[in-house]
Simulated scan of single mutants.
Amino acid sequence: MNYAIRRLTQDDLAAYRAIRLTSLQDHPEAYASTFDSAAAKPDDYWRQTLDKLCLFGALTDDCQLVGLAGFMAETGDKDRHRGWLIQMYVDPALRGTGCAMALVDTILDYARGRVMQVHLGVWDQNPAAIRFYQKAGFHIYASDPRAYFWGGQFYGDHLMVRYLDMAPGKTVQ
């Protein structure tokens, strides 16, 4: 399946809402948001999210949104050198095709010149995702064993970072 990566716009509102809800429904352990909460949000919420965040999508030749990745920069006086890779999701049919790496590379390219490092959180019980992010040059710098509580259960998170001013995989001593 062919796909192209591009920044999402207000014209993508319905497709963005649909893929975001799919990601939350299919992988509730992977996100801080829940499907029920997101599904109840009005269209205005989704419009504002598209305006506020920098969201990129992987779209097929027939314009189906099959992948999503977002970027959010910190804005504080002392942390504006940091950004976050958020809302990462790829349709199961495209996993292993390079689509996810293309989305991450797009986020990293977008982040260069805006921030010096990109952070992310990944569920600590998802070794495939952890290996994927390590392949993309991220490394674990902290773990939060009870980051989220949902459905009567705790979920842990690994925090990972990619320094854009260093070679991939390099860490600060």
Rank of each mutant, 00 (worst) to 15 (best):
M1A: 11
N2A: 10
Y3R: 05
R6H: 08
R7C: 02
L8E: 00
T9S: 01
Q10K: 00
Q10N: 00
D11L: 00
D11E: 14
L13W: 00
I19F: 09
R20K: 08
R20T: 06
R20H: 05
L21D: 12
T22H: 06
T22W: 03
T22N: 04
Q25W: 08
D26H: 03
H27E: 07
H27C: 11
P28L: 01
E29S: 14
A30K: 10
A30T: 06
Y31G: 09
A32N: 09
A32W: 03
A32R: 10
T34Q: 04
T34W: 04
T34S: 15
D36L: 09
S37H: 12
S37L: 06
A38L: 03
A39E: 15
A40P: 06
K41I: 02
P42I: 03
P42D: 15
D43M: 01
D44G: 01
Y45F: 15
Y45R: 01
T49C: 05
L50M: 03
K52H: 11
K52D: 13
C54T: 15
G57L: 04
A58H: 10
D61F: 07
D61G: 14
C63E: 15
Q64F: 05
Q64L: 11
L65T: 05
V66H: 00
L68I: 11
M72H: 08
A73F: 06
A73I: 01
E74H: 08
E74N: 12
E74A: 11
T75E: 09
T75Y: 05
D77C: 03
K78I: 10
D79A: 04
R80E: 06
R82V: 07
R82G: 00
G83S: 09
W84C: 00
W84H: 09
W84V: 00
W84M: 00
W84P: 00
L85M: 12
I86R: 00
Q87L: 10
Q87A: 13
M88Q: 03
V90G: 02
V90D: 06
D91Y: 02
P92R: 13
A93D: 14
L94E: 04
L94Q: 12
M101T: 09
A102Y: 05
L103M: 08
V104M: 08
L108P: 06
L108S: 03
D109K: 12
A111Y: 05
V115A: 06
V115Y: 08
M116F: 01
Q117H: 01
V118C: 02
L120M: 09
V122T: 08
V122Y: 02
D124N: 15
D124R: 03
P127Y: 05
A128R: 14
I130C: 07
F132V: 04
F132W: 07
H139R: 14
I140L: 07
Y141E: 13
S143L: 09
D144N: 14
P145R: 07
Y148R: 15
Y148W: 15
Y148G: 07
Y148M: 15
F149Y: 15
F149A: 07
W150N: 14
F154K: 08
G156W: 04
L159A: 13
M160S: 12
M160L: 14
M160H: 12
M160T: 14
V161R: 04
R162K: 13
R162Q: 13
Y163F: 15
Y163D: 15
Y163T: 03
L164D: 07
M166G: 02
A167S: 13
P168E: 05
K170C: 14
K170G: 01
K170T: 12
V172K: 10
V172Y: 02
Q173M: 07
